[in-house]
């Protein structure tokens, strides 16, 4: 299965077999980093996807060591995302499928993320998924292919956005998350850092499993202003403590809401899974591992190559559907908005 992903900033393509072997997983920005003359890292422009998608698909086949005729079917992200980018990938996928006379599947990008633990770890249904990245913070009970129960989502900022924006406030380089984690790692006394800043605990005591990160961001901005010395700088030890307290607060918020989701789930999941870039954060991961162990569930997280936007998860979601007999017509349209649970009623807890 060839999978093509163009819904966000990355142009990506991958070849995956139906026994979950990833033969190739190509991302354009990584390709150009290794190119002798460098290149332009893709931006949000659809034009950038258009310029890179052919090369990325060629490279995915080449690295996989397969030819066009080896493909059984083609999948491409059909949404949600920026309409221009989505259309480039979708049209490319359709054109390849039509030319090869092979089946085509239009895949929901979020479903790609949701099913990726089955590609990496063979997780069985149902499982509790925390999807945490720069753009998403969702708790999903993944019951089956196509059966996703949204238990919670962010009412304002995504968790990754909170990391990135507070890192920016701390004058750290982007991507903010890893830099903030590094800074927080210098903290020698986490307990007193937490006590010192007393950051808000969002939605504490509120019903449901939704998230809110905007208040944390504002709190960090206010604490920073108070810490700023007359010459406009912040002492590193202060920044370290604040970063550590913030990271602790984000991890705590994620795990507190997830705990509620586990308690209120209509059926007991077989595993707790975290996907998305924020799941790579050590403090977040430790909090989730602790939660899983308290709930008596195995914890797993797909590797970062499958957590950032990639073609392999799109190919895999295509395989999961294809195995169940689904294919799409050539009339499947790009959808900027496409909630995963649109056929379900949001669970009130």
């Amino acid at each position: 299965m060839l999978g093509i992903e163009t819904s966000c900033d990355e142009t990506a393509a991958s070849v995956v077999t139906d026994d979950a072997r990833i033969l190739s997983n190509v991302i354009y920005s990584q390709l150009v980093q290794h190119a002798p003359h460098g290149g332009v890292v893709p931006e949000i422009a659809a034009r950038a996807h258009l310029e890179s998608v052919g090369r990325v698909v060629d490279e995915a086949l080449k690295q996989a060591g397969v030819t066009w005729s080896d493909l059984s079917a083609v999948s491409a992200t059909a949404g949600p995302g920026l309409i221009g980018g989505v259309m480039v990938g979708l049209m490319t996928g359709k054109a390849i499928a039509a030319h090869l006379d092979k089946p085509f599947l239009g895949i929901n990008h979020l479903e790609g993320h949701a099913l990726s633990p089955r590609l990496s770890h063979g997780v069985e249904f149902p499982y509790m998924l925390l999807l945490v990245s720069g753009g998403h913070t969702q708790i999903l009970l993944v019951e089956d292919v196509g059966q996703y129960r949204l238990l919670g989502t962010t009412v304002d900022d995504a968790a990754g956005e909170c990391f990135d924006k507070t890192a920016k406030l701390l004058s750290l380089p982007q991507p903010g998350g890893p830099h903030l984690e590094k800074l927080a790692g210098k903290c020698t006394d986490l307990a007193s850092a937490i006590a010192r800043f007393d950051l808000p605990r969002p939605l504490l005591g509120k019903k449901g499993c939704d998230f809110s990160f905007s208040g944390l961001k504002t709190a960090v901005r206010e604490k920073l202003e108070a810490l700023t010395t007359p010459d406009g700088t912040v002492k590193e030890s202060d920044a370290v403590d604040l970063a550590a307290a913030l990271q602790h607060a984000i991890a705590g918020h994620l795990s507190a809401r997830l705990k509620k989701a586990l308690e209120s789930a209509p059926q007991k999941p077989k595993a707790l899974v975290a996907a998305g870039g924020v799941a790579a954060n050590g403090a977040v991961r430790a909090a989730l591992e602790k939660l899983a162990s308290e709930a008596g569930l195995p914890f797993m997280a797909p590797p970062s190559s499958l957590c950032t936007d990639n073609g392999a998860m799109i190919a895999w979601a295509g395989i999961e559907h294809f195995r169940r007999g689904r294919t799409d017509g050539m009339d499947v349209a790009a959808r900027p908005r496409w909630p995963l649970d649109e056929n379900r009623v949001k669970l009130s807890t």
């Binding site: 920026l82 989502t153 009412v155 304002d156 900022d157 995504a158 905007s214």
Partner: peptide, 24 residues
């Protein structure tokens, strides 16, 4: 927060979900 309050007021839905559009 200001945009959220405006959108909620204009649409007459005080609970309307208005997530941050930074990513999208």
């Amino acid at each position: 927060a200001f945009a959220r309050a405006l959108i909620r007021h204009i649409s007459g839905d005080t609970e309307r979900e208005v997530p941050s559009p930074t990513f999208t």
